[in-house]
């Protein structure tokens, strides 16, 4: 009677095949339920003199939409928020005396906004006043799997 026991090579091949099928199935499942995720982080905060400001890190090109916000204390002075690309060009900027100033760019508002790497910038664009500013960035991206 012939033995039905599989050899080590067969077991290895079976394991690889099973793992591949599982990975493929998992990829299909997570793809079908891709999640729109949001990650938010502060880029910098502190007292800034006129023309002074700071930048956040460049994104990883996976970002669909970016919102940059500058909160100033006490308010009433100009602050500017800008979306800067890798070439240093300011793609879209907003300036206001409001307590909170926002710039939001998405593929809805600028074609190809997700196709270039970008970073947030905030500065004090008043003429003669030092104030406290908190600069933050929120990114929206489509995740295959869970949001991180």
């Amino acid at each position: 009677m012939k033995s039905r026991e599989r050899g080590p090579l067969s077991k290895l091949i079976l394991a690889i095949a099973a793992a591949t099928i599982c990975a493929l199935a998992a990829a299909m499942a997570t793809h079908a339920s891709g999640m729109v995720c949001c990650r938010s982080y502060g880029t910098f905060q502190g007292y800034v003199a006129p023309t002074q400001g700071g930048d956040g890190p460049y994104d990883d090109l996976c970002t669909d939409a970016v919102r940059i916000s500058a909160d100033q204390t006490p308010g009433g002075y100009y602050s500017t928020v800008a979306l800067i690309d890798r070439n240093g060009s300011w793609r879209r900027s907003m300036r206001s005396t409001a307590v909170n100033v926002y710039a939001y760019v998405s593929p809805d508002t600028e074609a190809g906004a997700e196709s270039y790497s970008k970073k947030a910038h905030c500065n004090n664009s008043s003429n003669a006043t030092v104030y406290f500013i908190t600069c933050a960035e929120s990114d929206w991206y489509l995740a295959v799997g869970n949001c991180v």
């Binding site: 308010g75 009433g76 800008a82 979306l83 060009s89 300011w90 793609r91 879209r92 900027s93 907003m94 300036r95 206001s96 005396t97 409001a98 307590v99 909170n100 100033v101 926002y102 710039a103 939001y104 760019v105 508002t109 600028e110 906004a113």
Partner: peptide, 26 residues
């Protein structure tokens, strides 16, 4: 190419005009 906003405790916290400047490039 984007949306900008300025938010205050009241609409006219800084006077009778609530405004934003927006620009591209620079």
């Amino acid at each position: 190419g984007g949306m900008g906003a300025g938010c205050d405790p009241t609409m006219f916290s800084n006077g009778p005009v609530a405004f934003l400047e927006a620009f591209s490039g620079g």
